[in-house]
Design a protein around this nucleic acid. Structure first.
Lengths: 148, 148
DNA sequence: CCATACTTGATGTATATACACGTAATGTGA
DNA sequence: TCACATTACGTGTATATACATCAAGTATGG
C-alpha cells in the first residue's frame, strides 16, 4: 500500500470521515457561539428539538432516531437534567424504560435559543445558498441511509 | 418564535450542525470499526496522514489546516506520542514551537492501517457512488470555505 | 414456574473537542 | 535595554462520543 504524497493528498480529499468531521467541527463552532447566551451547545439544542417533537420518547428509541449511541444519549441527557431542562421518568409498564420529557424551564430556554439558532443557521447556509444546502443535506441523508 | 411541530421538523431537516454531526458520528463508526486491528481511530489516522504530508509542521499550522482547535490537536497528539507513533521536537530558532514528526513505528502502523481505511472508504462511498460523493465533498469544502 | 435469552439503561474507560486562562518565548518601540 | 504586546503552546474544565461490560427488568420456551 503506497504512502507517497499523491496518495496522502487523495486520502485527505476523499476520506468521508475526515471531511465530515472537519466540517462538523467548524460548523458546530458557529452554532455554539450563537447559542452561547443560552448556555446551550448545538448538540443540546438538537436534543431539545427532538423532545419537543417526540415527547415522552424512550431513550433507546431516541438514540436510534438521532443516530447516537445509547450511552452517549444517556450522558448528554444527564447534563440537561442537571440543568432542569428535561425530566426523566421511569416507564409504567416496563420499568426499564426511561421516558424523556422537556420541562417548562426547558421550553423557556428552547424558545430563547431558537432565534439564536436561526441566526447561526442563516449565517452558515448563507455561505453557499439555500438551494445548494438543501441539495447537500439530501445527499447527506442518502449517505447516512446507505449505512444501515 | 414558534415552537410547533412543523417548525421542529424543519429545524431537524435543515440544521447544518445537526445533519453534519449525525453523519459524522455514523460514518466515523464505520472507519473506527475497520481500523480497530491497528488500535487507531479515524481521527488519529487523519492526523498521521497530515504528518506524512507535511513532516515537521508546527502545531498551530497543522491545527489551522485541519480546522481543529490548537488545544484539541495538542491533546490528540499526546495520545499518538504516548504510543510512540509521533515525535515532538522543540523548534531550533523559536523555542516555543513544537514540530511534529511521524516515527518509524508510526509509519509502520500507518501502512498497516491504510488498506483498512480503504476498506471502510469503499464501503461508505459505495453506498452512494463515487461521483455523488465527489460532488458532495466538493460542496462540503465550499461550505467550510465560506465560514472563514 | 423456572432457566435462559433478550432488552434497557448505567458505568468504567478512553478519546475528541473547544473555551478560558496561564506560562514561556519572542518581537517591538521608546 | 526594558516594558509591553504578541505568539505558541499547555492546563483546567466541561461536554460529546462510543465500546465493553454490568445490572436489572422482561419475555419465552419448556
Amino acid at each position: 500500500m503506497p504512502m507517497d504524497r499523491e496518495h496522502c493528498i487523495a486520502m485527505g480529499r476523499t476520506c468521508v470521515a475526515y471531511n465530515l468531521r472537519r466540517a462538523s467541527r467548524l460548523v458546530s463552532q458557529v452554532y455554539d457561539q450563537a447559542l452561547k447566551p443560552t448556555g446551550l451547545k448545538v448538540t443540546q439544542f438538537s436534543l431539545l428539538v427532538s423532545f419537543v417533537l417526540a415527547p415522552g420518547s424512550k431513550m433507546a428509541q431516541l438514540a436510534q432516531w438521532l443516530g447516537m449511541d445509547r450511552t452517549t444519549l444517556s450522558r448528554n441527557l444527564r447534563v440537561l437534567e442537571k440543568r432542569g431542562l428535561v425530566d426523566l421518568e421511569q416507564g409504567q409498564q416496563d420499568r426499564r424504560e426511561l421516558k424523556v420529557r422537556i420541562t417548562p424551564e426547558g421550553k423557556k430556554v428552547f424558545e430563547q435559543a431558537t432565534p439564536l439558532w436561526l441566526q447561526a443557521q442563516e449565517e452558515v447556509v448563507g455561505g453557499i445558498g439555500q438551494e445548494r444546502w438543501a441539495e447537500l443535506a439530501k445527499e447527506l441523508r442518502s449517505l447516512v441511509a446507505s449505512l444501515k
